[in-house]
Design a binder for these strands. Sequence first.
DNA 1: ATAGTTAATCGTAAATATACGATAAATAAT
DNA 2: ATTATTTATCGTATATTTACGATTAACTAT
Lengths: 112, 112
Amino acid sequence: MNKTLQQIKYSQETEDLARFSKALGHPTRLIILKYLSNQSCCYTGDLVDILPLAQSTISQHLKELKEAGLIDGEVNPPRIRYCINQKNWKKSKKLFQTLFQEDFNFFSVVKL
Amino acid sequence: MNKTLQQIKYSQETEDLARFSKALGHPTRLIILKYLSNQSCCYTGDLVDILPLAQSTISQHLKELKEAGLIDGEVNPPRIRYCINQKNWKKSKKLFQTLFQEDFNFFSVVKL
DNA sequence: ATAGTTAATCGTAAATATACGATAAATAAT
DNA sequence: ATTATTTATCGTATATTTACGATTAACTAT
């Protein structure tokens, strides 16, 4: 007797952590984030110089990081200046810390 | 003048962190891991009872967590006992800590 | 006005992920 | 031996991801 349900309602924390994790789930995006957190900010072109990937591909990765909330893009024509979104970066740091805490109460954190 | 290269060689750390992140990048898998880290171990059936998903879907998620190295499955017929792989769990914890460190040297961590 | 620069977006192809039901395998219980 | 239990795997459909080149948009510089 299998259950069928397309949509599950997860807690906000679980959704957030999954979204952040997913964004971190590609080596190229990790490189971008590490670069950003070191340089504080950069332009798309800086990354195009560093990474052996097409400009459009890098732009796509930046879009995903932006949509996950991990970076911001400030228009500075004709370029766009990308920075880490400090608020969400800290938020994701906290969520990961909670996940890896030695002891936590499952039911206080996990709500389906 | 766009670059074209299908395969990029990332550092082992970057690959590992991306693999762990990707595995964490789905709410259902987060729930499973949180449950496991609380219960220490469980069977597939326990998760089928908790999660409103088909048994085959849960089995698939367990497979992904296993392939990422985050859990182990010990055959205990006809059931399979799943536990967190403590070694890799700690490893991923460390990798995330490094990622979120306030200050680190980009070039000491990131090697393309 | 024209040309150059920067970076997003579009169109597309291939691969991967997510979900399901059905089936199979392996064992335990009757 | 037969039946029940547990869980992986198969087949499949749909959605998403990842990559590319080409194009477009927005601005700068000449």
